[in-house]
């Protein structure tokens, strides 16, 4: 096939990617700004990073956010993988339409609705707002994303491998753990990472379900931004962006390696 990039294609790609990356880049650059004024360059300095690490309220919020993200992403990965298996391997079970509806709806549902409805539920069952309510709320939202990621992998998956294992007498659970699971592992890891970042990032649902005891980093950042721009928030953002960039590069390298390995074994 003869596909060539025209000048128009190249221009739209360049402008498009500049639009996507310039704001993030500016944010990172200005986190090294010596001036207290966020938009006036006052020379290079790592002052705000130091200030950040002495800001105990912010560090505490970061720690809570990290714990919630780890726990909810783990739960969401287990639940999402089960849901994906149910959708791909169980054919038409009773209530399947409702089930797919419940899996797809939370992903597009405005966060204000999800947040409010979960809060009212937690109040109705008399659960104190805080760490656990945010964790449960995030698990519910993110498991749907895990489901979709794992489901798309299960769809394109060679079922004859599972059938061969069963023919050779492996019980279903054993087949799952020694054949299915290793094959869908990359998608499970991807699902986990997605759930983790979504939880780290969420402001709206966490705000509805946070209690006096547990404030997350996005809630903290949001309340600071409402008071005005602060270079400390820039520094915190730059660190988060750095972590995510490293994580994505790491994940890409890992998946490249596993693709190469599986190609090598295939030949």
């Amino acid at each position: 096939m003869n596909r060539r990039l025209s000048l128009f294609n190249v221009t739209s790609l360049v402008i498009g990617f500049a639009f996507l990356y310039l704001p993030i880049l500016l944010l990172v650059i200005y986190s090294f700004n010596a001036s207290r004024l966020v938009t006036v360059w006052g020379g290079f300095s790592t002052h705000w990073y130091g200030a950040l690490f002495r800001n105990e309220a912010l560090l505490e919020a970061a720690w809570v956010t990290l714990r919630i993200a780890l726990l909810s992403a783990t739960l969401a990965t287990v639940l999402g993988t089960l849901a994906a298996l149910a959708l791909t391997r169980y054919g038409r079970f009773p209530g399947r339409t409702l089930f797919t509806g419940m899996v797809y709806a939370p992903m597009v549902m405005p966060e204000v609705i999800t947040g409010l409805s979960l809060l009212l539920f937690f109040v109705a069952v008399d659960l104190d707002r805080g760490f656990w309510t945010i964790t449960l709320a995030h698990t519910t939202l993110t498991m749907c994303f895990v489901t979709v990621v794992v489901q798309s992998r299960l769809m394109t998956f060679d079922r004859s491998l599972e059938e061969a294992a069963m023919d050779l007498g492996a019980p279903p659970l054993r087949t799952f753990f020694s054949v299915t699971l290793p094959l869908i592992a990359p998608s499970i890891v991807a699902g986990f990472l997605l759930a983790f970042t979504l939880s780290m990032d969420d402001l709206v649902i966490a705000s509805f379900n946070a209690g006096p005891g547990a404030t997350t980093l996005p809630i903290k950042i949001y309340s600071q931004v409402r008071l005005g721009l602060s270079p400390e928030v820039n520094a915190a953002s730059a660190i988060l962006i750095g972590i995510v960039t490293l994580g994505v590069i790491g994940a890409t390298l890992l998946s490249k390696r596993s693709v190469l390995r599986s190609r090598r074994t295939a030949h």
């Binding site: 500016l26 721009l229 960039t245």
Partner: peptide, 28 residues
């Protein structure tokens, strides 16, 4: 494709916050 997805992995709140500094009257 990876380059389109990457910003999605960075915080939504932070990406919106970045625009505040850009669009402010004395902004970038």
């Amino acid at each position: 494709v990876a380059l389109v997805i990457l910003p999605f992995w960075t915080s939504f709140l932070i990406r919106i916050y970045a625009w505040v500094a850009i669009l402010k009257p004395e902004g970038l």
